[in-house]
Every structure is written in C-alpha cells, then in structure tokens.
Amino acid sequence: MSAPIPDPAPQPGPVAALSIRGLAKRFGEKIAVDGISLDVPAGSFFGIVGPNGAGKTTTLSMATGLLRPDFGTAVVHGVDVWTRPLEAKKLMGILPDGVRLFDRLTGEQLITYAGLLRGMQKDVVASRVGELLAAMDLSQDAGTLVVDYSAGMTKKIALASALIHAPRLLVLDEPFEAVDPVSAANIRSILDRYVASGGTVIVSSHVMDLVQRMCDHVAVVAGGRLLAAGTVDEVRGGASLEDRFVQLVGGRSHTEGLEWLRTF
C-alpha cells in the first residue's frame, strides 16, 4: 500500500467555482480518496458520478469543509476552504448525504435555524422560509416535526436549508434519492434557474440518465481516483453516458454464469 501522493498541479484558475488539488483521505488501511484534482467552472451544472464506494461523498465532504483531508486543497471562488473556512462556508450551500438533521424541529423551524445560524436577518429568513417551503411543496407540512417526515420530504427540507443564504456554489450529495418525480422536476427547475442566473451546482449521483439530461459537465470517479472530467459531451464521446461510464469503471460482469437462474 502506498501513501497517496499530492499532485503537483498548477494553481487553480480564477474562473473556477470549486477547484480541488490532490485531495486524498485514508480511513485506517483503506484509501478512500487517492489524489483527486478537479476544476468546476463557475456557472456550470456539474455532475459527479461513480459506483458505490467510489469516494464521491468523501471528496465532497473534504471540498466543503466537513471532513479534513490528509492531503490537498479545496478552493471555492478563490477562498481556501481549509485556511479560511468561515468565508468559504458563506459561499457554499451544502446538502450532505447520510447525516442526520435536527429532526425534533418542525420543517419550518429547521430552515429558519439554518438561516439564523448563518447570521442572517430575521425578516429575510422569514420571507425566504415561506418561499422555500412553497417551492419544495412542503407548506402543508411546515409544522410537522422533521422526524415524522418521509425520506423524500426530509431530503427536500435539507435542500431548502442549504439554499436559504443564497450561496454562489451549491454542493448536493445525492439530492434526488427517494424524492418523488414531481418534486424532483420542481427541484431541477429551481436548480436550472439558479445556474442560468450564474450560480454553480455540483451534484453527485449514480443515476447516469439523470446526470446526462441535467448536467453540462461531468466527472467520473471510481476507486478514489478521477477517471474522466469535462463537458458531458466530451466525456461520453458519442456514446450514452451510462455506456461510457461502464466502459471507464469496468467491472461489468458478462451475462455468463448464473445459468441456474434461468432454470427455475
């Protein structure tokens, strides 16, 4: 086992909304992220795809200041996440995957709490909370405790909490998991408008089809390494993103074997 070696890559470009260099993280014996460098252009709708356990969540956690990297840097709009965390976090809205929420608050209280924690004005928070609840189709359940929400509603309320301070960069880890198609369409149109007005969105997903339709840029991650990155058209090179992904990641077992499955 070799230690991850930091990438001697050039300085991040000025247009990047997020620029990571040589990010690496090891948990015990397992290297979760093995030196990933990536530039996310400002104003892009950026998809990060990869198989389960590829290191997507770990990479995004390190890029957003939730998990300290062993090596490497992450810079958001020119602000280093790990040397100037408070400034960097002001620029970002984060939807982490697999973390709990303060679920003994009502949905409305939770979004308000996220806004107030960021030091926003009370009246600004109040008006935005109303609009966010309406946009997420949660107005009818605003007074219900989040612990009683369904999985999809919980995702939506967490997303609303990430949007409240109008960040310049949105980092969403698996935002559409368990979200119903109508809500997903609503969220996508919110995100599309956000990108059209100059915001940057990074989503991680393993639904290739969704990423191909929604994103303009994509990065393929597997085994803690970056396999490909660029515009969606560059990466897929004529094929569908899904086929290209399988080709890049490998590990597709051919349909030999399991004959007994056809014998009933």
């Binding site: 957003t64 200041g65 939730l66 960097a88 976090k89 973390v99 960021r118 990430a162």
Partner: peptide, 15 residues
C-alpha cells in the same frame, strides 16, 4: 447527542 446533525453547525460555519 446531536450526532451527525452537528454537520449543520459545521456546514454553516457558525462560530
């Protein structure tokens, strides 16, 4: 007691 809900405090950069 917060468990991973504490991530909100880290993410928002509350002092």
């Amino acid at each position: 007691y917060d468990n991973t809900a504490f991530a909100l405090h880290v993410a928002t950069g509350v002092r």
